[in-house]
Simulated assay, not measured.
Amino acid sequence: MAVPKPQIEAVLSVPPLNVTEPREVRHVLVDEALKAGRFGGCYNVVLYYMKLNEEDNGLFLAGRIVESLGKSLLEKPILAGRLHRKENGDTEFQLVPNDSGIRLLEARIPMTLSEFLELNANNDLEPELVFWKDIDEQTPEYSPLFYIQVTKFQCGGYTIGISCSLLVSENLLVDNFLGKWTDMHNKMLPPNEMTKTPIFYPPGLVSYESPPTEIITRTPSRNGAPSMVFKITAEDANFNKELAMLCVEEAEQRLGRKMGSEFSLFVKQSSEDIKVEDCSNGICSEHVSELKKKITPTTWEDFGVYEVAFHEGNKPVHVSRWIGSVSEGNVIAIPYPKEGVSAVVIVTLPIENGL
């Protein structure tokens, strides 16, 4: 059976409903040794929903979520912002919540959701359900940090595909932006509005028989990079390169693949700072055994809340999560405010043969 690809029907930007003031920026500290691709990679989530009833239909979902999404962004305006290069050097950047908006795409695929899930069991089809375009190294201020793709199936089922830059991934992994957004969505939408065409119905606003390629060109998918999730299980543990290397070593042993001699390390140091640096693989600490006690392998299910519904009572039948658009390995460390845990760490190993 030939596998059809989703057809993009509409593209629009969704900013916060109100202007963000004050604009609290996040400093991005970049190691001078890093080369092109310093901001590559994204955190991907795909949520699958069957059609619950006539009211819960993917037909108008993209239009319905615009207002609730804009309102939710009032609490997390950084997701609708952009990355800017500071004037005093090309290795100093800032994440600025300038309300440029996240990118929302509506797509349609000529098959049922059940058929897609069956085909996906033996094929890598999920990248078609998310959209990502790498941050442009020369003009990062024009690159969205967050994309949402709503894909409608013939059966009335739908998927919500989310891609966000690794620089803001903690909003999904730790801050539960998705859960807060769906709560807002269900509170805002009266039951008698479910069957009405929404005001912000994307195909009614912008529609293309053949969408312009300069608008919808995506970064080619480079899936296949295996990832492993860890938690640092000491409240007073300061995350450092040695802990990163121990996580890498554990991931290499469990996944049967090597990181390589160097990798990129993303460390969110505070709400105002995130550091991206080159890290050489290898352990030289005299206290390895003590450090290992602070590391616990875990799963994606421990982080982020994804049992969410855009229509009350209809939770996803399946959820997928992965680190996408990477060819080289990296490690992401994010503070995790939970008793007995100080950080969540994600190790992504390189794609085999550079594919």
Rank of each mutant, 00 (worst) to 15 (best):
81 G>M: 07
232 I>Y: 00
239 F>I: 07
339 E>Y: 02
151 T>F: 05
264 S>R: 12
269 Q>C: 05
103 R>T: 12
139 T>F: 04
133 K>Q: 12
287 H>M: 08
244 A>W: 00
75 E>D: 13
215 I>L: 15
20 T>F: 07
270 S>R: 03
139 T>E: 12
147 Y>Q: 07
245 M>F: 07
347 V>C: 02
240 N>A: 07
98 N>Q: 02
139 T>H: 09
194 M>Y: 15
157 G>I: 02
261 S>D: 15
280 S>V: 12
111 M>K: 04
135 I>H: 01
320 S>V: 01
43 Y>G: 06
89 G>W: 06
222 R>A: 11
40 G>A: 15
199 I>M: 11
94 Q>T: 11
123 N>L: 14
151 T>W: 05
335 P>K: 09
274 I>H: 03
138 Q>C: 12
146 F>P: 01
28 V>L: 08
253 Q>I: 11
71 K>Y: 11
50 M>R: 14
160 I>G: 00
314 N>R: 02
174 V>L: 04
194 M>V: 12
77 P>Y: 00
176 N>G: 01
337 P>G: 13
101 G>M: 03
318 H>K: 15
9 E>N: 13
299 T>C: 06
252 E>C: 08
266 F>L: 09
34 L>Y: 06
30 V>Y: 04
143 S>C: 08
241 K>L: 10
285 S>F: 03
67 E>K: 15
110 P>C: 05
334 I>G: 05
277 E>F: 07
92 E>C: 07
132 W>N: 05
261 S>I: 09
305 V>H: 11
355 L>T: 15
222 R>D: 00
9 E>G: 06
15 P>T: 04
27 H>L: 14
297 P>K: 08
208 Y>D: 01
146 F>G: 01
179 G>H: 11
119 L>Y: 11
36 A>R: 13
287 H>Q: 11
9 E>I: 03
308 V>Y: 04
21 E>D: 13
42 C>V: 01
241 K>M: 10
88 N>T: 07
318 H>A: 14
353 N>F: 12
146 F>A: 03
229 V>D: 00
109 I>H: 01
235 E>H: 11
157 G>Q: 07
254 R>H: 12
185 H>W: 05
348 T>S: 09
331 V>Y: 10
268 K>V: 04
45 V>N: 08
148 I>S: 00
196 K>G: 00
124 D>M: 09
113 L>D: 04
193 E>D: 14
159 T>V: 08
86 K>V: 13
340 G>D: 09
84 H>A: 07
325 S>R: 10
180 K>H: 10
46 V>I: 15
113 L>H: 04
18 N>V: 13
305 V>E: 11
4 P>W: 05
129 L>Q: 03
156 G>P: 04
10 A>P: 06
9 E>A: 06
290 E>F: 00
24 E>Y: 12
141 E>P: 01
216 I>F: 12
48 Y>P: 02
23 R>A: 12
121 A>I: 09
106 E>N: 14
108 R>K: 14
294 K>D: 05
351 I>L: 13
176 N>W: 04
120 N>S: 14
111 M>V: 10
96 V>R: 10
153 F>L: 05
278 D>S: 15
84 H>T: 03
23 R>Q: 15
151 T>K: 05
309 A>K: 06
281 N>D: 06
233 T>W: 00
252 E>I: 01
82 R>E: 00
326 V>D: 03
260 G>F: 09
71 K>W: 09
250 E>C: 06
355 L>A: 15
50 M>N: 15
30 V>N: 04
304 G>I: 04
320 S>K: 10
309 A>D: 13
5 K>D: 03
192 N>S: 13
